[in-house]
Design a protein around this nucleic acid. Structure first.
Lengths: 204, 204
DNA sequence: TAGCGTTATGACCAGACGGTAAAATTCTTA
DNA sequence: TAAGAATTTTACCGTCTGGTCATAACGCTA
C-alpha cells in the first residue's frame, strides 16, 4: 500500500522532498550506511524537522520501499495473456530496461534490500511477489505448451529478465568502467543486445 | 595483490578466522552496516584482539576485496582464444554459475561494493578489469568475425553472463521466495536454463 | 489582527561504534 | 626454565547517530 496522503500543502511538499532525498541517500549507502543528517541536509531541513514528518529512519525507508514495490512490479502485471507472446515478453524486457535507465536509484534501493536478505519486505516477497510470478509463469507455460514460444523454464525466464535489465542500473559503475568514457550511454546497445537475445531464445 | 602472509601459526590461523567472519558479516550487512563487534564475536575474539591483526575495519574489508577480485575474474582469464568458441563460453557461464552457488558471500560482497559506487576498487575497475574485458571482448569479436558464433555485442555478452549468473547469489532470497519451499535448490534448473539460452543465442 | 493549530529550531541524551593504551598472559626458544 | 617476544584482555576515549523535548516562529482563518 502507498504512503498515506499528507493533509496540508506544506506536508505534501516536505514529505516529497524528504522521500526524494532519502531515495538518493538510501540507494547509494544502504539502510545502515545512510544517516538522518545526510538526508536532512539534502532535503534542506533540520533533523528534528525531518522527524516531524516521519517517526523514524525506518519509517522513511519503509515508505520508499512500499511505494516502490508497486511501481516495480507493474510491467510484469501488465504482461497480457491475450497478447502476442513474443511481443509481450519483448515489451516486458524493454520496459524493465527503461526502468533501469530512468529509475536507477529505485533499482539500487531494491537491490540493497534484497542483497541484505530483504528483512523489511520478506512478507511481500513470499506473498504478493511469489503469487504474481506464479500467475505469470502459468501464462508463459501456456504459451510454451501451445507452441507459441520455444520451450523455456518460465520462472527462470523471469529471473533472467530481472537479472539482465537490473544489472545495468545496479552495476552501473562497472558497466561504465568497462565500456570506457567514449561510450557514455550503454542503453542503446543494451536494448539491441537484449532484444536479439530474447528473440533467438524464444522464437519457435 | 593478495594480503601479506602472516608469520606465525597463530597469526595465520587468526587472520583466516577474522577474514572468514568478516566475509560473513560484510557480505550480509555491507561495509557500514557491519560492526567490528559483530565480526569479533563471530570470530571468537575480542575487538582489541581483532585490531591486533588488522589495523582497521577498512583494512579488513580491503583485504577481502583484493583477495576476492583475483579469484573472481579467473574464469574470464581462462577463456581460451584457441578453444572451441561455443564450448569456451558455455564453460565460462558454467564456472560463473558454480561460483554463485559455492561462493555466494563473495558474490554479495562484490555486489555490495559495486552497488555503492565501488569506492574502494575504482582503480581496479577502470584498470585491470577494463583491460581484461577489452582483451576477451576482442577474442569474442574475432569468433564472430570468423563466423564461429552468431553476431553478438561482445561486452554486452559478458555483462549478460555476469548478470545472469551472479543474480542467483545476489538475489538468492528473492529467487527462493519465488520458487517456494518445494524447490529448495535453484541451481540445476538454472544451469539447464542458461545453457539452453546461450546455445540458442550463439549457435550459427 | 488575534488566536490557534502547524511547522521549525536549538539544546540535548543515551547508546553504539571505531579505535587506543597499558597491563596481563601465553608462547617460543635459547 | 628463564627471558623476551607474541598475544590477549581490561578499561577507556571521542565521535557519531537516531531520537526527544521544550520553545519559538509561522500561517491560516474567524
Amino acid at each position: 500500500m502507498p504512503s498515506p496522503r499528507p493533509r496540508t500543502r506544506i506536508q505534501q511538499r516536505n514529505s516529497e522532498t524528504i522521500l526524494a532525498a532519502a531515495l538518493d541517500i538510501f540507494s547509494q549507502q544502504g539502510f545502515r550506511g545512510a544517516t538522518l543528517d545526510q538526508i536532512a541536509d539534502l532535503a534542506g531541513l533540520s533533523k528534528p524537522n525531518l522527524l516531524y514528518y516521519f517517526p523514524s529512519k525506518e519509517a522513511i525507508h519503509t515508505a520508499l520501499l512500499t511505494d516502490l514495490l508497486d511501481v516495480w512490479l507493474q510491467p510484469l502485471r501488465d504482461l497480457d495473456p491475450a497478447g502476442d507472446p513474443l511481443a509481450e515478453i519483448l515489451t516486458y524486457v524493454r520496459r524493465k530496461l527503461d526502468m533501469s535507465r530512468d529509475m536507477p536509484r529505485e533499482s539500487r534501493l531494491f537491490a540493497n534490500e534484497v542483497l541484505q536478505g530483504a528483512p523489511r519486505i520478506e512478507a511481500t516477497m513470499t506473498g504478493d511477489l511469489a503469487a504474481l510470478v506464479e500467475e505469470k509463469a502459468g501464462v508463459i507455460h501456456a504459451w510454451v505448451t501451445a507452441g507459441h514460444i520455444a520451450p523455456v523454464h518460465p520462472k527462470h525466464l523471469i529471473f533472467s529478465i530481472w537479472a539482465l535489465t537490473q544489472h545495468y542500473a545496479d552495476f552501473d559503475v562497472q558497466v561504465r568502467a568497462v565500456l570506457g568514457p567514449q561510450e557514455p550511454d550503454p542503453y542503446p546497445d543494451a536494448a539491441q543486445h537484449l532484444e536479439t537475445m530474447f528473440i533467438k531464445m524464444l522464437k519457435v
